[in-house]
Structure formats: C-alpha cells, structure tokens
C-alpha cells in the first residue's frame, strides 16, 4: 500500500514538473497576446489600461510593418523553394553516385549547422561587400538558401537510409529514362522527407534574425522590424501581428495534423 502511495506521489510530481516547464515555455507568449489587447497608448506600452481591439485595426494601417512581413514571406518562400530543389537533387546525388570530393561536400554541409549564426552573417557580409553586391532581397535570399540547404539534405537523408533502389532499376528496365524515373518514382518516395525539409527551411528562414541583420541592406524583414521596435519599446501592433501569426501557425498545424509534422524531429 505504502509503495503504491509513493508511486502516485511521484507521478503527480512528474505532472507538476511538466506543467511548470510548459508554463515556462508559454509564459512570454501569454504576455505578448495579452499586451496585444492593451489599450495603453504611451510608451513603453507596458501598464495595463483596459481591453481593446484597436491594435488589430491599427495593424492594417501600418504599411511599414505589413511590408516587412510581406518581405519575410517572399524571402522564406523563395529560399524554401530554392533550397528544397537544390537540397533534394544533392541528397539523391550524394546518396546514389560515387565521385571525388563527396566527403568534402559532406563536411562543409555541417558548417552552417554548427557554427554560430553570427559568424555566418558576418562572413557573408564581408564577401558581399568585397565583391560589391548591393545588399537587399537578393543577398538575403542567397544567405537563407545557404543555411537552409544542409537542413533539407539531412532531412531527406534520414529518409533515404531505408530506401530500396531496386524500384528505380525496375522503372528503368521497363523503359523509363533517368529523368522520368526521378520524377515519377524517386520523388514520390522521398516526398515526406522533402516536405519535412521544406517545412524546416521555411521555419528557419521566417524566424532568422541574426544572419538577416548583417546582409539586409535597406530591406526590412519582420524579425528585423521587431528588433527595431524593441529598441524603442514594442508597440502593441507588433504584438498583434505576432498573435495573428501564432494563431495562423497553430491552425495550420491542427488542420494539417499529418504524420509529417508530428514526426518531424526538428522544429
């Protein structure tokens, strides 16, 4: 009896601990959501002055902020598309074929993953300024593609390890050429890995602040806009936009509650 009681207490302690960790993880988000309804109009927008929806209305007149958010979506969309295409081809090629320098490419892929982002940011800044590429959307896209590719490749590679290439041989034996086999056999098999990699690339790109901070030039992204407004006290319309984005992503997860998102191991 005593033992059972002790076990029960232990289980309860475990639940309490988990609740506390979740509280820790969600607390700042709760602060943001609540503050997006704060009626205060004076900087730094902290003291509670009653409930209002006006920041949400205000948000749609703040063309700067919406423009920055639009830039972020374009940037994340384009770099996800490019890094997913390049990464998929590369993952398949590196898995399938033998060539010199494979080990080297493999080693280089780990660099953007382990090295601190600030080093990636300043190294790209240094190069762009030395070869006189004007900083803006183009340099942002190039930078984001470079750090997204490795994550796409690792995601697909995890999928490739249990891959049976005999179906491809069968396809070629039956007369399909290499390209058709790739499009109709290889791609569908790898689809979950590719989608997982693309999702990861998108989330990394949309949240990136450190690397963008060095290569953006005059182009503002949403995270950079947030950084700018933090220096002057975050206006509640930034909170409002963040709240909307949060609701959007949670809805997206709930709606697409597929295997893919649940199983995909990075965030």
């Amino acid at each position: 009896m005593k033992r059972k009681k002790r076990e029960k207490a232990r289980a309860r302690g475990g639940v309490l601990f988990c609740v506390l960790v979740y509280l820790f993880l969600f607390l700042p988000i709760l602060v943001i959501v609540v503050n997006s309804f704060n009626a205060t109009t004076s900087k730094p927008y902290l003291s509670w002055k009653g409930f209002t929806f006006s920041w949400y209305a205000e948000l749609f007149t703040n063309t700067d902020l919406l423009g920055a958010f639009g830039n972020t979506l374009i940037l994340a969309g384009v770099s996800t598309l490019l890094s997913t295409m390049i990464g998929t081809l590369g993952a398949v090629g590196m898995y399938r074929y033998k060539f010199r320098g494979k080990g080297l490419i493999d080693a280089v892929l780990y660099i953007p993953v382990v090295i601190p982002e600030i080093v990636v940011g300043i190294s790209l800044l240094t190069m762009f300024s030395r070869i006189n590429i004007p900083r803006g959307m183009i340099t942002l896209i190039l930078s984001h593609v470079s750090f997204c590719i490795p994550f796409v490749i690792f995601n697909i590679r995890a999928r490739l390890s249990g891959y049976d290439s005999s179906v491809e041989e069968a396809s070629m034996d039956l007369g399909a050429n290499r390209i058709r086999t790739f499009m109709e056999i290889t791609l569908p098999i790898l689809a979950p890995g590719i989608a997982g990699g693309a999702l990861l690339a998108f989330t990394l790109s949309i949240d990136d602040v450190i690397i963008s901070y060095f290569v953006n030039g005059q182009t503002m992204t949403y995270p950079l806009k947030v950084m700018e407004s933090i220096r002057s006290g975050v206006a509640p319309d930034v909170n409002a936009l963040s709240t909307l984005i949060l609701i959007g992503t949670v809805l997206l997860v709930v709606l697409t509650q597929s295997d893919l998102i649940i199983k995909h191991r990075h965030y």
């Binding site: 988000i29 949240d207 949403y222 947030v226 950084m227 933090i230 949060l246 949670v250 997860v253 965030y267």
Partner: peptide, 13 residues
C-alpha cells in the same frame, strides 16, 4: 509551437 513565434518578441515578452 512556442518556437514558431519570433524569438525576439518572446525574449521581449
């Protein structure tokens, strides 16, 4: 899920 909100704004939170 919390990490799908911008990290800067969560730190500001």
């Amino acid at each position: 899920i919390p990490f799908w909100t911008n990290s800067l704004i969560r730190i500001y939170g």
